[in-house]
Design a protein around this nucleic acid. Sequence first.
RNA 1: GGCGAGAUAGCUCAGUCGGUAGAGCAGAGGACUGAAAAUCCUUGUGUCGGCGGUUCGAUUCCGCCUCUCGCCA
Length: 324
Amino acid sequence: MTSPRPPLLLIVGPTGVGKSAIALELAGRWGGEILSADSIQVYRGMDIGSAKASAGERARIPHHCIDLCEPDRPFSVAQYRERALRALEEISSRGRLPIAVGGSGFYLKTFFAPTVDSLAIAPEIRHRVEKIFQDSGLPGLLRELDGLHRHPPRCLDRANARRVMRALERCLASGLELDALRDRFRALPHPCAGHAIRTLLLERPSTSLRPILAERIGAMVRAGLVDEVLSLRRRNFEANPSARCAVGYRQVLEFLDGKMARAALEEKIFAATWSLVRRQRTWFRHQLPIDRRMELADAWADSGAFAAQWVRENGPALRQLLEM
RNA sequence: GGCGAGAUAGCUCAGUCGGUAGAGCAGAGGACUGAAAAUCCUUGUGUCGGCGGUUCGAUUCCGCCUCUCGCCA
């Protein structure tokens, strides 16, 4: 049974290409709602540095999956997945066009494939693994993990302590070897089975993206990024590693702690942003099924009314993509 | 002007008790099961400031020069 529900339009691309502006424009024209796929916009108070949609924009077009939790409370893909799928159902049941927009690859993948298993990890196991890591580091974790296997598991980045910890937790919680867990994981059902998904990748040449990012970072600092971090600090956001380590926020914290000169701030944020862009591009190349790739011309800056004109010119092609 | 310190990879620097060099960052590629804007892996030939001298051999020692940074006049 095929549903008459509208397809999900996914707009992905590296940070700063202009996804949001275009998505807003499309949503306005086509009766859509925005579903954010951004691992930082989920935190309340992290507004400037995550380039969150303004209150005005949000009043005009409904936005979902933004401001889902307090900045001191870690949020995970698992939670995102739940909220995003629920939002997707809501939007489609109203007959509106869901437009998912974002640059967080792992979050975006949640629409296409299983990203987490449903294995519950008991707190005792979590603490035990944590303790092994504290006492004997990565080698200790690997010793423990290998002890649970007849052959050392191959499908694991053994240099990545965070991954090894998660793997060990899952093995301890399930009593299964890593390969068995992976097979079971891969057999999980498609998360959005009922939806047609169309993915649009927006790109622009690095020579055009770099100056846009540099300009945008300057604008963020001028708009009060440092004050935003000060106020987040009062809300204890440093207790949350994913918030505290976010691009821009991490560098401002270093500056506030005297580990970095004010003069170096924007340059360091730029460097971190650019390595994010590179990881995003790698992810989009290999991890997401892209239906259509469109490169924005140099002339389209990430500001002003460029989106309206771009959509006027490219709307028909996108229509076609949706009706495919 | 005098004294001192320095000049090595795009940047910050290490090093070679004389046998033509290596880290971090940046850059490029990659991985990805609950922090993913995170975490991790791979990837480094550059007149070792210039010119001479000593030496089988100098980026390394010596002299001169150029530039930079201190301190003193």
